[in-house]
Design a protein around this nucleic acid. Structure first.
Lengths: 337, 337
DNA sequence: CTGTTAGCGCTTTCAT
DNA sequence: ATGAAAGCGCTAACAG
């Protein structure tokens, strides 16, 4: 009933060739006469012409489309901001995102990539929430950027938080407040560490060490960063050792557990114990006093991923680090020995 | 360097016409000889042929694509599960999702819809987090389903949580536990109520009323459902009135605030006061004792939205309600008068 | 400066 | 049972 308006219709109405119409509507009309231009625009307007992007894509061998494949999108709050950042950057560049989720299944990842390539995406973004991506073996016909995952040895582009800078900021903050004895909440055996986690921990350790601050270790009961673990382990850290004056929680869930643990132990934050954390998860809004934490720059990372994906030719492969920022709130205070 | 393998290549290698190859690879080969079939499959396999979905879409005037436009995707945990449900349903049907975010900007919504139509999506899903969608004025060339928003007077399809059923479950639960005097935390002046909210509240009210349970009203200080409000208002409800034995929080954030409020008032959950809530937000995992809450069925809704979108011809327009489910946990107990 | 022609890769009449 | 040819809507060579 509503036959699609095509470029041919516009051209006909403007009494020019499709070529002219195409040129003009795409702003490459330097040469066309003003009168022709006007007629074309008028016709397009009158007919309410909209280009068929599939046809254009077919012809140009470019779809103005990016495939975003994520391991998890719903079950964590990480994916949302990454997608948002990617979406914004894509929109600014007149690209649209195909979004898919693999649910951590490698075979599904392969399948998703195939399908997206069949759709002629111009680039792929492989986002992970775990920090570790498994890359497709084969050579891809389009650029791939790994988002929030280390790239491994290949020639891939990857975008990661600058964990080293983040760790340093957290540690420096506590050092500058005069703390001399701290606990890092969430450390488990090194074999469990993903690359980003390792960087975070090592940066913390090295910064504290340089400042001569003592780090008290309490090994995790389970290598899981949830609030239960935070509760259990913080309790032990407070119970079993001569008191630390500050703790660095390796993520906000651990910190939330620690809050509860300290409350039950009768310890006041930040008066009795300071706490600084990582991630700046939404959940921190429930904590009182408000948690000082080093934010994971997910939105910026998502944005960066599409920027890189669309400029892969002009950009060195390897890791691209996005700065982390300390969110100063109210869970830390000066330690007066 | 790697020239795309086309159907023509496959046909050539199998020494058949493109027509035959197409027919066979699409399983409409009833007529072709077994030998030809074998040759085609072999050739496709050998060349690792993959169809160009843009070309197919152009020809078939069907893209096997759905446009998902959401007002908010990152800043709330609602969108994630809806997208996941939609993603899963789409995948099962060999469709791919374009995802966009409008950030609540109506003009951006129009723009997003235009772009998706230019991309020849077969259907549109308009998801909201607020519960209220503003629909495009004009007649769309493809089916549109409103996700988590009431559809208004138009001929649209919409998917909503069954708030009435959810409200009833929450109220029935408290009634069955013997509570006779409850507070509904989060009610503000009716002019602030969105359609879903109104249904939730009215269902609560009517169920309590039928059971002869007294509902204590405390008007909200601000019409905002966050934990601060929950804290403030719960405090007042406990302070200003003869004690209620149970509260229904209209969402989990309010409940979280109430938890803190009750704790400070020296009230134990569920011993002194029972609390049941709505949403089953991730944040509830931080609450102790664990919160009994009526889950919003977002994933099922997302799934349903694509099912409807792809079968719009065979389905009555109007609202489609997805059941809500009470998650029984540990924040309620029997009231022994 | 402008228009004609061809072709992106696919599916689909329509002949054979 | 099989293939030739047309055409989806667009843009890029190439002529004029």
């Amino acid at each position: 009933m509503s036959p699609r308006i095509t470029l041919a219709d516009v051209a006909e109405r403007a009494r020019v060739s499709p070529t002219a119409a195409s040129l003009i509507l795409n702003g490459r009309e330097a040469r066309l006469s003003a009168d022709v231009r006007r007629r074309v625009f008028e016709a397009a307007e009158a007919l309410n012409y909209r280009p068929n992007l599939m046809a254009r894509g077919l012809r140009m061998e470019k779809s103005a489309t990016i495939g975003f494949v994520s391991d998890r999108i719903a079950s964590t709050r990480y994916a949302g901001p990454m997608i948002r950042g990617a979406l914004r950057a894509a929109r600014e560049r007149d690209h649209t995102l195909f979004v898919t989720e693999t649910e951590g299944d490698l075979q599904e990842q392969e399948r998703a990539i195939e399908v997206l390539l069949d759709r002629q995406v111009d680039a792929l973004i492989l986002a992970t929430v775990t920090g570790e991506a498994v890359l497709p073996e084969r050579q891809l016909p389009v650029p791939l950027v790994v988002l929030n995952g280390s790239a491994g040895p290949g020639e891939y582009l990857s975008v990661l938080p600058d964990e080293e800078g983040g760790g340093q900021q957290a540690a420096d903050h506590l050092v500058s407040l005069g703390h001399r004895r701290v606990h890092i909440l969430g450390t488990s055996e090194p074999q469990y560490w993903t690359v980003p986690v390792r960087r975070r921990i090592e940066s913390l350790l090295s910064t504290f060490s340089k400042a001569g601050v003592e780090v008290v270790k309490v090994s995790l009961e389970r290598p899981v960063w949830d609030s239960e673990t935070g509760f259990d382990t913080a309790t032990r850290a407070v119970t079993l050792h001569s008191p630390v004056t500050a703790v660095v929680a390796l993520n906000d869930s651990l910190a939330a557990g620690a809050y509860e643990s300290f409350r039950q132990a009768g310890l006041t934050i930040p008066h009795d114990v300071s706490i600084v954390s990582f991630d700046d998860d939404d959940i921190v809004s429930f904590l009182r006093p408000q948690l000082t934490t080093v934010a994971l720059p997910f939105e910026a990372m998502g944005r960066r991923a599409v920027e890189l994906a669309l400029n892969s030719h002009a950009v060195p492969s390897g890791e691209h680090l996005e700065p982390m920022h300390l969110q100063l709130r109210h869970s830390t205070s000066r330690y007066d020995s």
